[in-house]
Amino acid sequence: MFNTVLPYRLVQRNRNPGGRESWVYEDIYKFFVHSPSSRRKYLVEVHAYPDHLYTVDFYAKVHDVNRYRLRTNQRAMGRLGGTMLDILAGIVRADPQARFGFLAAAMVHETSDFKTKRFKIYVKMFELKLDPARHRVVVRSESSSIFVMPVAVAAKASLQEAIIRRYERIFAETF
């Protein structure tokens, strides 16, 4: 699982001249997931913050306020995860010091953020597919958040905690 990479491309890079949020730029990628009965466009938003911090969100393009929480029932998590990991790998190639923060959104029927269904599958994905010699994964079950950072950064406990605290401020500003 998580070995298939769908064809994707970078659509655009948005700057943040107004500075309403703290990100510096935003890259938007797109790809399509085909199932026997449907074809869905997925959008991936990568926000870059100062000091090599990145957040990555993806969703199926639907007109719904709950777009991060919906299920598409395409049975495509393996392909979606593989594609996401390839996008992350591209970011790491360009910026080897990149750190990532993810918030696993709750399903529409889930009432709390504690160990959401998405959190469980993302954790399994990172357990399987991230090279432990290069990256460390830290998770917080209470808010279903996941942080990925290079081993050299994670070795310094104070730096690691400072990065996690910064990510929590970023999540508070965005969600």
């Binding site: 390839d86 190639r93 357990e127 597919k129 090279d131 460390r136 830290v138 998770v139 917080r140 994670a154």
Partner: peptide, 20 residues
Amino acid sequence: GAEYHSIEPISQIPGYTYAF
């Protein structure tokens, strides 16, 4: 009071590779 865990890898199936 929230707990932060460091997750360790599951050993890879031979022939499969890490993403990064």
